[in-house]
Amino acid sequence: MAERMTFTINGKEQTVDYEPEMMLLDLLREVLNLTGTKHGCDNSTCGTCTVVMDGKAIKSCNTPAAKAAGTSILTVEGLAKGMELHPIQKAISESGAVQCGFCTPGIVMELYGLLEANPDANEVEMTNALNKHLCRCTGYEPIRDGALIAQKMIKETRK
């Protein structure tokens, strides 16, 4: 039997019906058609499904949909303000961090979870966050470059 819950998705409160065994990833992709969040593996290894729940980056593939009730979820679709990209999106899109782009939404959301809460994140924190994401294309160096540029941009806006 389908269940019903209310949560905030990309700033808008919404009530949805979902199957109890559903994971948050399926709720986002299949029920809400928010396909920006990706599904890259079966065992919570790749990080492509990362979204931000109440300010924290989490893997939506191993988070039961029911857990979203009453929370505020941000997906990659919710970052840009109209045509204006979030600094993380801007930095990542310009640093060479995007090749095939399949890992990109997860990495963008990971960095959002990290840098919005802690713009002064140190190298270890940054490394630990990015190490949760597999990228087969870039060799990671351009992702690091993009993350550092993003951090700088965010710090500047906070000044």
């Binding site: 396909t35 920006g36 969040t37 990706k38 599904h39 990659v76 990209l85 990542i92 899109s93 990109t104």
Partner: peptide
């Protein structure tokens, strides 16, 4: 790059 950082790129799934 833009469609990929905004999650708007359309992959098979």
């Amino acid at each position: 790059a833009i469609s990929k950082v905004t999650g708007k790129a359309v992959y098979l799934d």
